[in-house]
Amino acid sequence: MIETKGLRKSFKGRGKTGTVEAVRGVDLSVSDGEIFGFLGPNGAGKTTMLRMLATLITPDDGEAMVAGVDLRKDPGEVRQRIGYVSQGGGVWDDSTAREELELQARLYGMTKTEAKIRAEAALTAFQLESFADRRAKTYSGGQRRRVDVALGCVHQPRLVFLDEPTTGLDPQSRAHMWDEVRRLRDLGMTVFITTHYLDEADALCDRIAIIDHGLIVTEGTPAALKREIAGDVVTLGLNGASARAGELLDKEPYVNSVEPVEGALRLYVEAGAAAIPQILRRLDDEGIALASIELHRPSLDDVFLAKTGRSLRDEPAATKGA
C-alpha cells in the first residue's frame, strides 16, 4: 500500500541554523490491510514523513508509491485515494458533523445525493448519530475525534493516515478509538497511524517502525521487536544516586546494558531472578539506598529506549515541529 525508497526532505532553517534534514532517506513498506504504527520522538521526522505521504509537503528526493500511485508524479490522484486525519483535527466549531461529512464527501467529487448517503453511512458507522446535528463546539474531545476520523474515511479510501488519533483522550474514548481503528482494518482498509503511546502501538498495530534523526532505526511486529531485546528488564528507583549506581552496575558481568530514565535506572539483564540478589548486594556494599525495584519483560518502551537512547514516555517538550 505504501512503498518508499530513499525519501528525503529538508527544511531551510531560520537565520544561521542552516538546513534541517528532517527525513534523510527513508525506505518504508506498508502492506495492504495492516495497521502500521509509526513511532518516533518529537523532531525525529515522524510528522514530516506523514505529511509527505499525505501530499501536504513535497519530498526533495526519493521515490514513493502511495495507494498504487506515484506520489511525486501524481499527488492529485493520491489525494483521491487516501484519507488523512491531522493531529488537531479539522472540524469547524459552528458546523455540525453531518454538514462537515457531506461537504467533505462533495470535495472528493461526489454528487449531492451520493454525499448525503455517504455522510449518513459514516454517521452510523462511527456512532455519531446522537450529536450529528449539533454544532461541533458542543462535542466532547472523544466525539470530536471520532468526527475527525469519520471525515478522513467518508470517501472510503483504501488507505488512511491517522496522526496521533488518541492524544489527549480519556481512557474510555481511547479504547473506543482503538475499536474504530480495528473496525477500519476489518473493512479492508490500511491504517497508517502515529502515536505517542507505546502500549497503544503494542496493542493495536500489526507492524511498527521507529524513526529517529530522520532514519528508520527498526521495523517489525511488536512481538518480534520485543524478542530482539533478550533477557529481562530490572528497573531501580534510586533517590538521586542513579549516576553512581549506573556506573557501578554497568561493570557487573550479568548486566548487558544500563539506561538512565528520569530518576530511575533501567538494567537489561540475562535473567532477572538471578540478577536481582546480586544487584541488591552490590548496592548494599556501596551503601546506596534503593527506593524501589521492579522486574519485567521487555516492552516496546524498552525497544524504543534501546533503539533511540530515549524514552518516549519521558521525553521533554518538543523542540521542533518536524
Binding site: 501536504l56 491531522s86 472540524v91 470535495l107
Partner: peptide, 16 residues
C-alpha cells in the same frame, strides 16, 4: 482562524 482549526489542512488533503 480556519488555519488554526485545521479546516484548511483538512481540505488540502482532498482533491479540491
Amino acid at each position: 482562524a480556519e488555519l488554526r482549526a485545521g479546516v484548511i489542512e483538512r481540505m488540502r488533503v482532498t482533491p479540491v
